[in-house]
């Protein structure tokens, strides 16, 4: 085990299998820390981190902020709605102004794909991508794979179906890269309109039938229907989507095996997943959230050591 091969975390595509394993074993240690009476270590006490959120987020922002505080870093939060971005300031100017106040690391969510990479090429700071448009969401993929590893012992050889809006999903793309690097098989499942045309070139299976995907998989990762990104109609109605791709108890009961259910949140209850499943023991949704903090602590800790 060694240092990470990268100075930034822009996407899972850019990191190696060894990087992912290093992050996981470090996250194991941080999970121990999080279960102690005092859930805090002094590792990053000389580091200041800014959380730049140009897009709404509850879970990811809180998770990052908590991870930073558990590592004793100083934290600044920024959201675009209350900032000078509305006055026409460019991204580079905004970030350089923040860095002039001696900030060491930037965690950024931005609606434009590639925004994190662009920033890493133009400013002198470490960047962690917390979601860039429909491109990547690396820490979500890491915590998903970490949760699978924790529940099933290993990721290698497991079959994971990613169900729903693959077209608009940065979670799907990062998950595909991450799972494949760790040796899992991946299938994407959803209506034809929400599956990118050339997705097979990534080496994933494609299905348009949820029952078929469930019968195939060990883990079903149910993605949220992104109501805010449906600028044209990709399916007739939510009811129609629910009937074809919604995960329900009768659907699970038809299977001759137990499968593990995941969801990156926020859940549209009764659309992609029914309430009774979301609250059942098969669903790891809250484990994912818990593991999110430990995984992000590991990423921040390992990247900070690179400077």
């Amino acid at each position: 085990m060694s240092a990470l091969s990268t100075d930034h975390l822009l996407g899972i595509k850019d990191i190696t299998k060894e990087d992912i394993e290093t992050i996981f074993s470090t996250a194991d240690n941080f999970k121990d820390v999080l279960n102690r009476p005092i859930k805090k270590v002094p590792s990053l006490r000389d580091i200041t981190i800014v959380n730049l959120f140009f897009e709404n987020s509850t879970r990811t922002r809180i998770s990052f902020e908590l991870a930073e505080k558990r590592l004793s870093a100083d934290v600044i939060n920024f959201s675009s709605s209350s900032s000078s971005v509305n006055k026409g300031e460019t991204l580079i100017d905004t970030v350089n102004n923040i860095l002039a106040m001696k900030v060491d690391m930037v965690v950024m969510r931005h609606p434009a794909p590639g925004a994190a990479k662009f920033l890493s090429q133009h400013i002198d700071s470490q960047i962690i991508n917390a979601g860039d448009g429909t491109h990547e969401h690396p820490t979500q993929a890491l915590l998903d794979a970490f949760t699978i590893r924790e529940k099933l012992g290993t990721v290698k050889g497991k079959k994971v179906a990613i169900v729903g809006d693959i077209l608009h999903s940065r979670v799907a793309l990062s998950n595909i890269f991450c799972l494949q690097k760790l040796g899992a098989e991946v299938m994407v499942c959803g209506p034809q309109t929400l599956i990118p045309r050339h997705i097979r070139s990534l080496g994933v299976e494609v299905s348009h039938n949820l029952d078929e995907a469930l019968a195939w998989c060990d883990v079903a990762n149910m993605l949220r229907i992104q109501l805010e990104r449906q600028e044209i109609s990709y399916f007739p109605s939510l009811t129609d989507y629910q009937l074809q791709y919604g995960l329900t108890i009768p659907r699970l009961n038809k299977l001759k095996k137990e499968i593990t259910i995941m969801h990156p949140g926020p859940i549209n209850r009764g659309v992609e997943i029914s309430s009774d499943i979301a609250d059942s023991e098969h669903a790891l949704i809250l484990d994912q959230v818990e593991n999110g903090v430990a995984t992000r602590m590991a990423v921040l800790f390992l990247l900070a050591n690179k400077k």
Binding site: V41, S43, K307
Partner: peptide, 10 residues
């Protein structure tokens, strides 16, 4: 394990 408490980190 004292890794997270070391003073030579970074």
């Amino acid at each position: 394990d004292i890794t997270f408490y070391r003073d030579d980190y970074r």
